[in-house]
Design a protein around this nucleic acid. Structure first.
Length: 906
RNA sequence: GACUGCAUAGCUCAGUUGGCUAGAGCGCUACAUUGACAUUGUAGAGGUCAGAGGUUCGAAUCCUCUUGCGGUCACCA
């Protein structure tokens, strides 16, 4: 073995050997007897990265976390599957390619110049390249994904799933075509859903004005130009303007000569008297709230009308009047405000802070516009019909024939605990989101994505705005004159089907039977709504199953100052660079340890470097063990049983090893990956390397235990650090033996008494501390005398260890012995340890130190005594606690007695 | 505005159902160093667990309030 572990030398070959073994594929594992057909399944579908570029640290964290879970379960013998895939990411990818084509100078308006088909070819080509990069990077991370099952959200199989679900929802009346005010991105020339809006706060002006001199009510707005399309003024039904309700005004010359507004006064509870002027100018075409009011009035038989004054291009329409038509919103605003002020209609301008919705993708402020679009109705009830489901109805407390809305179903599976969210606090966030959820606009006016499976003819406009024939189906309709809706679906529609579409639905595949519902959905909390919630919606509706049993949410990876990593800040840590520099295992550990689910993690290069050191430490421990065995002319054995403990230290390390195995198992089961890893690191470095390996050098003849401990530790570490552990394993046992599919050390009941060893440790540490305190060269060998009482045999049996590790010249152990001259002492577990320090003992210092210790101990004893004499404590505390406290007290008292004696002897 | 998270050593964080003289890693200080490892070892310093009340025999842990910093959602014209 090399002196230092060099990740680069091993990683690629090892990954290749895993791939060649076929063990990423559960079918192969069954074939080779690693698991069985009937074993418990463990499934994760990878949150598919967008094909928009390369992987970042967030992806790396995701891959690392999921790979730990997957490798752990595979080693446990579960039928384990991790399905890879990528997401077409519709808008994100399309706009990225468009931008690239423009930047390359090849095109000015790529979509126009190329046409739909050619443009999509370009996008597909880019997506393919991105995909290849992503796959390679995922492999670099060591991800044990089953590549034979790879899926893409826009491939044929997934397209079939999308069309099938669309049709089903349409037939159930859950997907409908509706004329609504939607969020329009002028820049992107497409709708976006409510969830894709990012609200930003910005300064704005609030204008107070009247439509005309004789109009009775003043209104307030931040968007005066839209007021050219007002059709009503809403007032509180019981407020100060109550008397006007029902009146209708024909206002002449608004904004320009001849522009007439017909304004009805309506009552609406939504209007808050204390805000603005207490009256609201209703612009049904350009505000979702106003549109709701419009619908409400219409339902009451009062059609107030709707006038669209802003077009899809963000410019004023003819409806705004000839003076405004064709002007930009900003220009029109200036013009109209100027008009109002000249006419004396403007009462007040006020500077305010305003929240506006911007498109997350296109970064422009969205324009609310009325358009006919496709929506998913989240409130409409539908009947549960178990014959629709592949494997029947599997939702807790949901019965066949009952009626649910999609919202209710989404709530139900979490309230019943059928889906568990980790950390739990995100339950509330989830429910809060559902409570505020409105119908989901799913149609997008872009080309890259699943084209809506709807065809129109005769009397229908391009997007079916008329009342002609319509065909919704998986296949195109037969006959002449049909045209498919040119729009595509929101990328989250297909992503919502991911757990089951990736497993082959709507075909009745074996994978669906075997691996769905999936076990864990692990992803960043930032896409809880976008994706996780929508998968729950789609899967419960389509399959009558939950998509997954547990949602594990990780936090965002931030820089060491806690800032988001971004190009503009220049603080991006690239996972591939870190892998190159420190190795994959170190990079993985830095993302796995030292954080908790759901909270953001701060990452620094230093941290990664620290774990590189650890990987090397593990390597060198293995190297040492190999050399030790060689020296003893022993061979490392792969399948070694629990060896017999010959010495106290053996007992101790075997017990510790067992304890840490149990901790790792139970914490991996409860998904505390970080805690499991930290405990394992502490054991490996502190107990095994720093103590036991040092003792092995002294006691010798430990080949079996060293062999056993190393094997166990490599297995325990494998899910976290697959490469270095596998490298060591194959170095020892040959390339035909693959650690990845070895049996994970399961928890056992073993209870060896290790207290005695801890006494030895404390004696050693105590002596070392004295050396440190007196600034004595660690190499200098000292004489130590121990007054050991009934522990004399124990200490004598372990005197070699004490002498060596504490670097002693002579060690005298007696049952009872007086303090030698020129010595300092300490008390440990009833022992008095005297360290001879000829010439350097500073009695004053010694006395001061002892005094401090006595003082502290006295306080401590007083506290314990107080506790134990407190009748409340004695009567209400559990017996085990009382016993524990009693023991503490007697130990402390014994120690105090000895310290007092020493103190008076100085 | 509603909801929500966080505040523990210089830094990053553990601390699982209340039972600690409050821990780890990094950093810092001192010392060591030829055969597993300087990507190392040994030891040390460093904390009124944000503040104030409360519940309890017992609070870093539970409750209330205050302060500071985040996050998510939201139709206030």
């Amino acid at each position: 073995m090399d002196k230092a572990y060099e990740p680069k030398k091993y990683e690629d070959d090892i990954y290749k050997s895993w791939e060649e073994s076929g063990f990423f594929n559960p079918d192969v594992c069954i074939e080779k007897g690693i698991t069985t057909k009937d074993s418990k399944p463990f499934t994760i579908v990878l949150p598919p990265p967008n094909v928009t570029g390369t992987l970042h640290m967030g992806h790396a964290a995701m891959l690392a976390i999921e790979d730990v879970m997957v490798r752990y379960h595979r080693m446990k013998g579960d039928k384990t599957l991790w399905v890879p895939g990528t997401d077409h990411a519709a808008v994100a990818t399309e706009s990225k390619v468009e931008k690239m084509l423009i930047e390359s100078g090849e095109f000015k308006k790529p979509k126009e110049e190329l046409g739909r088909e050619k443009f999509l070819e370009r996008v597909a080509q880019f997506a393919q390249e991105s995909h290849d990069t992503i796959v390679n990077q995922s492999k670099k991370m060591g991800s044990s994904l089953d590549w034979s099952r790879e899926a893409f959200t826009l491939d044929e199989k997934r397209n079939l799933a999308v069309k099938t679900v669309f049709k089903k929802m349409y037939d159930d009346g859950l997907i409908y075509r509706g004329y609504r005010v939607i969020n329009w991105s002028v820049k992107g020339q497409s709708t976006c859903s409510d969830d894709e809006l990012v609200h930003i706060e910005r300064p704005a002006k609030m204008y107070y004005f009247k439509y005309s001199k004789d109009f009775p009510i003043t209104i307030a707005t931040t968007r005066p130009e839209t007021k050219l399309g007002d059709t009503a003024v809403a007032v509180n039904p019981t407020g100060k303007y109550q008397k006007y309700i029902g009146q209708e005004f024909e206002v002449q010359d608004v904004g320009q000569k001849g522009h007439i507004l017909k304004i009805k006064i309506i009552g609406d509870d939504h209007v808050d008297e204390s805000f603005g002027t207490g009256a609201l100018g209703v612009t049904p075409a350009h505000s979702p709230v106003d549109f709701e009011m419009y619908l409400k009035q219409k339902a009451l038989g009062n059609d107030i009308g709707l006038i669209q004054v802003i077009g899809e291009d963000g410019k004023m329409t003819d409806n705004a009047g000839s003076d405004y038509s064709g002007f930009s919103v900003e220009e029109a605003r200036e013009k109209f405000v100027n008009y109002l002020s000249v006419e004396g209609l403007l009462e007040k301008e006020e500077d305010i802070m305003q929240n506006v919705g911007t498109s997350d993708r296109f970064k422009d402020v969205v324009e609310p516009l009325p358009k006919t679009q496709w929506f998913i109705d989240v409130n409409k009830k539908f009947q549960i019909d178990e014959t629709n489901f592949l494997v029947g109805l599997q939702l807790t407390n949901v019965k066949n024939g009952e009626e649910y809305s999609l919202k209710e179903l989404m709530q139900k599976v979490v309230t019943t605990g059928q889906i568990k969210i980790v950390p739990e606090r995100f339950d509330k966030v989830y429910f809060n989101w559902i409570d505020n959820l409105r119908d989901w606009c799913i149609s997008r006016q872009i080309w890259y994505g699943h084209q809506i499976p709807v065809w129109y003819r005769k009397g229908n406009g391009e997007r079916g705005t008329g009342n002609g024939e319509i065909h919704v189906g998986v296949e195109a309709p037969e006959g002449e004159g049909w045209a498919q809706d040119p729009d595509t679906l929101d990328t989250w529609f297909s992503a919502g089907l991911w757990t089951f579409s990736a497993l082959g639905w709507p075909e009745k595949t074996a994978d669906l039977q075997n691996f769905h519902p999936t076990s864990v959905l692990e992803t960043g909390y930032d896409i809880l709504f976008f994706w996780v919630a929508r998968m729950i919606l789609m899967t419960t509706y389509t399959l009558g199953q939950v998509p997954f049993e547990t949602v594990y949410l990780h936090g965002l990876v931030r820089d060491e100052q806690g800032r988001k990593m971004s190009k503009s800040l220049g603080n991006i840590i690239n996972p591939l660079d870190m892998i190159e520099k420190y190795g994959t295992d170190a990079t993985r550990l830095s993302l796995l340890l030292g954080n908790t689910p759901g909270s953001d993690m701060k990452l620094s290069e230093e941290k990664i470097g620290g774990f590189r050191n650890f990987a090397n430490k593990l390597w060198n421990m293995a190297r040492f063990i190999e050399m030790t065995l060689e020296a003893e002319e022993k061979k490392l054995v792969k399948d070694i049983n629990l060896p017999e403990a010959k010495t106290l230290s053996d007992k101790w390390i075997l017990q510790k090893l067992n304890e840490v195995s149990n901790v790792v198992v139970s914490n991996l089961d409860s998904m505390n990956l970080s805690y499991a890893g930290e405990k394992l690191r502490d054991f490996t470095w502190n107990d095994l390397a720093d103590w036991y390996l040092e003792i092995a050098k002294i006691e010798g003849e430990k080949s079996e235990i060293l062999n056993y401990a190393l094997n166990t530790v490599l297995k325990l570490w494998h899910p976290f650090m697959p490469f270095v552990t596998e490298a060591i394993w194959q170095e020892f046992y040959g390339k035909e033996n693959i650690l990845m599919v070895e049996k994970f050390p399961l928890s056992t009941e073993q209870n060896l008494e290790i207290k005695d060893f801890e006494i030895i440790q404390n004696v050693i540490v105590g002596i070392r501390s004295i050396k440190g305190d007196y600034k004595i060269d660690p190499v200098k060998k000292l004489n130590v005398t121990i007054s050991a009482g009934d522990k004399k045999d124990l200490l004598s049996q372990n005197s070699a260890i004490i002498s060596k590790l504490a670097r002693l010249e002579n060690l005298h152990i007696e049952e009872k012995i007086a303090k030698p001259d020129q010595s300092v002492s300490f008390v440990e577990s009833g022992l008095e340890i005297f360290v001879e320090l000829a010439g350097v003992v500073d009695f004053a210092k010694e006395k001061e130190k002892l005094g401090k210790e006595i003082e502290q101990l006295t306080k401590y004893i007083a506290g314990l005594e107080g506790k134990l004499s407190n009748s409340g404590f004695v009567s209400s505390a559990p017996a085990s606690i009382i016993e524990q406290e009693t023991n503490k007290l007697s130990e402390a008292k014994e120690k105090l007695e000895k310290l007092n004696k020493q103190f008076s002897n100085i």
